[in-house]
Design a protein around this nucleic acid. Sequence first.
DNA 1: TTCTACTTGCAAGTAATTTGCATCTATGTT
DNA 2: AACATAGATGCAAATTACTTGCAAGTAGAA
Lengths: 138, 138
Amino acid sequence: MQGIKELLNKKGHKATPARLAIINIFKNNKKPISAEEVYKNLKTKLKNINVTTIYRNLSSLSSEGILRKVDLKKDFDLFELNEDHHHHIVCTDCNKIESFKNKEVENLLNTIIKKSNNFKQIKEHSFEIFGLCKACSK
Amino acid sequence: MQGIKELLNKKGHKATPARLAIINIFKNNKKPISAEEVYKNLKTKLKNINVTTIYRNLSSLSSEGILRKVDLKKDFDLFELNEDHHHHIVCTDCNKIESFKNKEVENLLNTIIKKSNNFKQIKEHSFEIFGLCKACSK
DNA sequence: TTCTACTTGCAAGTAATTTGCATCTATGTT
DNA sequence: AACATAGATGCAAATTACTTGCAAGTAGAA
Ligand SMILES: [Mn+2]
Ligand SMILES: [Mn+2]
Ligand SMILES: [Zn+2]
Ligand SMILES: [Zn+2]
């Protein structure tokens, strides 16, 4: 937890208890979670923590590239650590989330951008799959 | 505009002026648009049209598979006709949207699902690309 | 033409996220 | 170690996209 504090300070942000705890939650969690989920988790550790603080931190941590927002067709935003780029398969019934990496997806981006008339550079992309997990498809 | 009316009736929905006008807007429009955009457009054609009607119709037309919701990282939903499956490249600066089809993306789904431990069937997927268009990247 | 289920307009309600502001605190400086 | 201050936080109020309840209207079947 040493590098994190320096990283934050270097970006002009303070390593507050709330912020460190939030990052910690994501370090110990492999699937995307919502502000509300972070909040519930944090309440057990920090008395007097407010959801607003969660929202503000999820937002700033995301712009700094420490977290990233994941769009999984929910009516609220999900976040996860912004390490090792990957995609998700989501069960639309029970919300099980499996993540996967696939080089070909990434290679395809080049092919696609070459064919494009209006774009020459890509900043990011999303590739998410929705279906029923084995348990739910019975 | 004959087939549409029958299609709607067959699904137990009435071919009301509002509903037909909404479908028409999408027929004459190639990029995903929001409820608010549909509303602005409709106001010039139907006096006394209410946004609620737009929301309700976008929703029902989507569940019927006539429209589909598109997720482009906006804070509102976008919709487009649910014909010929495709994906988008979006300019994060000026919101220009280019659409493309790519067989390989679709083929990849099979490869991915085979490697999955928890999923065997896919219902849908999203693959959206974000970057700067030529005009905006100067 | 009549009947009725589906629609619509309008007002009010939700739910997620944001903002204003007074108070507080982590960190650099003295 | 005490100080100064930019950045954080809690709390309440505001925003915003979207939904819901209800009474009145209308498309389509008979
Ligand atoms: Mn993930
Ligand atoms: Mn499209
Ligand atoms: Zn499942
Ligand atoms: Zn552009």
